[in-house]
C-alpha cells in the first residue's frame, strides 16, 4: 500500500523571537501533515502558538520572529526558505487565508468588486469581464443575496457575517489548494457562526481544497474538522481523528481541556479544573511543558521531553504515559 503524499507537511518547525533578554522559542518542533481535501483543526489556548503556525506556513511571521529550524513542504516542495517574491506567488494562489476580523482584512477604500477582481487577475490570466463574472459567481456561492448588485458595495455596507463571507470568497478566488482559516468565526454571533462554518466547509469540499482551521473553540472543531492537533506551549500535545481525540483524549492536557468545557448536555455541578495556567515563553519548564500542571506527572516528565508517540487509529500523543518503556515499569 502506498500512502498518498500529504498536501502540506510540517516537520520539526521551530519559530523563535530574539529579544534583549534572550531568544524565546514560540514553536518548538511542531510536526503535522494535512492530506488533500482534509480539514485539520488546530486548537489551543491563547499563546499556544496556533496562529503563529499559520503565519509561519504562509510566510507572514512578524519580524523579529523567524523560522529557526524545520521544514514546511507544500506538495513535497519546500516553501519555508523561498524568496519573498516567490512566496508572494504562492500566497493567495495556492494558499488562501481567512482571518479573524473581517473588517481589517478588507480594504475599506475599495469596493468588494475591485478587491475580488484584483485578486483573481493577480493570480489568473483572465480578462476584467471574466474576472467580474467569476467574482459574482463566488459571492453568490458564499451566500450573499443579490450578489450581482451588492458586489459594487463597499465593505462597510455589509454586516459582520456577510463580510466574513466576502473574505472567504476572496480567499478562494484563485482556487487555492489549502485555506488557512485563523479564528474565522470568533468575531461573530453563534447563529452566524454556524452559517459561516457551513459555507467554509461546503465550498472547500466542493473544490477539493484542504483547510487548516485555527480556533480556540472545541465545538467548532468537533463540527468541522476531520483531524485535530492540540497545541500546548508551542508544542503538539496530541493529534488524531476528531472523534477519538474529543471522546477519548489520551494526553492529560487534552483530557483536562475537554472536562473544562461546559456543554449543553452535561449536568455535573463542577467543571474539571486544570490547576495553574500555561507557562510564559520565557519560563517553559524542563521536560514535558505540561508537567507542573499534570495530574499523572512522574520523574521522567520533569527531565525528558516526550516526542510524539504513535498510537492506534493514526493518533499521536506526546506523553510519557504512552511510552512502551514507561508502561512496563508501571505494570511491574
Amino acid at each position: 500500500m502506498m500512502t498518498a503524499e500529504p498536501l502540506l507537511s510540517v516537520r520539526d518547525l521551530i519559530v523563535e523571537f530574539p529579544t534583549r533578554r534572550g531568544t524565546l522559542r514560540a514553536l518548538d518542533h511542531v510536526s503535522f501533515d494535512i492530506a488533500k481535501g482534509e480539514v485539520l483543526g488546530m486548537v489551543g489556548e491563547s499563546g499556544a502558538g496556533k496562529s503563529l503556525t499559520g503565519a509561519a506556513i504562509i510566510g507572514l511571521l512578524e519580524p523579529p520572529g523567524r523560522i529557526a529550524g524545520g521544514e514546511i513542504r507544500l506538495r513535497g516542495e519546500r516553501i519555508d526558505n523561498l524568496a519573498p517574491e516567490k512566496m508572494r506567488r504562492i500566497r493567495g494562489r495556492r494558499i488562501g487565508m481567512v482571518f479573524q476580523d473581517p473588517l481589517t482584512s478588507l480594504n475599506p477604500l475599495y469596493t468588494v468588486a475591485q478587491q475580488l477582481i484584483e485578486t483573481i487577475r493577480t493570480h489568473m490570466d483572465v480578462s476584467e469581464k471574466e474576472a467580474r463574472a467569476r467574482a459574482v459567481a463566488l459571492l453568490d456561492r458564499v451566500g450573499i443575496p443579490a450578489a450581482a448588485r451588492r458586489i459594487d458595495d463597499y465593505p462597510h455596507h455589509f454586516s459582520g457575517g456577510m463580510r466574513q463571507r466576502v473574505v472567504i470568497a476572496l480567499a478562494l478566488a484563485a482556487e487555492p489548494e489549502l485555506v488557512i482559516a485563523d479564528e474565522p468565526t470568533t468575531a461573530l454571533d453563534v447563529s452566524v457562526q454556524a452559517q459561516i462554518i457551513d459555507v467554509l466547509k461546503e465550498i472547500c469540499a466542493e473544490r477539493g481544497a484542504s483547510v487548516m482551521l485555527i480556533t480556540h473553540d472545541m465545538g467548532v472543531i468537533a463540527e468541522t474538522a476531520d483531524r485535530v492537533a492540540v497545541l500546548y506551549a508551542g508544542r503538539v500535545a496530541e493529534i488524531g481523528p476528531v472523534r477519538d481525540v474529543i471522546q477519548a483524549a489520551e494526553h492529560p492536557y487534552t483530557a483536562g481541556l475537554m472536562g473544562a468545557i461546559p456543554t449543553l448536555t452535561q449536568t455535573a455541578p463542577r467543571l474539571t479544573q486544570i490547576p495553574g495556567s500555561m507557562p510564559r515563553l520565557n519560563a517553559i519548564p524542563q521536560g514535558c511543558a505540561f508537567n507542573p500542571r499534570c495530574p499523572h506527572v512522574f520523574d521522567r516528565c520533569r527531565t525528558q521531553r516526550p516526542e510524539l508517540i504513535d498510537r492506534a487509529g493514526g493518533r499521536q500523543v506526546a506523553c510519557w504515559l504512552y511510552d512502551p518503556a514507561t508502561q512496563e515499569v508501571r505494570h511491574d
Binding site: 447563529s191 452566524v192 454556524a194 452559517q195 462554518i197 473553540d217 468537533a222
Partner: peptide, 20 residues
C-alpha cells in the same frame, strides 16, 4: 441549534438563516 455539538451526536439540525 446553532451551538456546535461537542458530543458529536450527529443530530440533524435546522440550518440557521439570516442575521439580527
Amino acid at each position: 441549534d446553532a451551538v456546535p455539538d461537542l458530543a458529536l451526536s450527529g443530530r440533524r439540525r435546522t440550518p440557521v438563516t439570516g442575521e439580527i
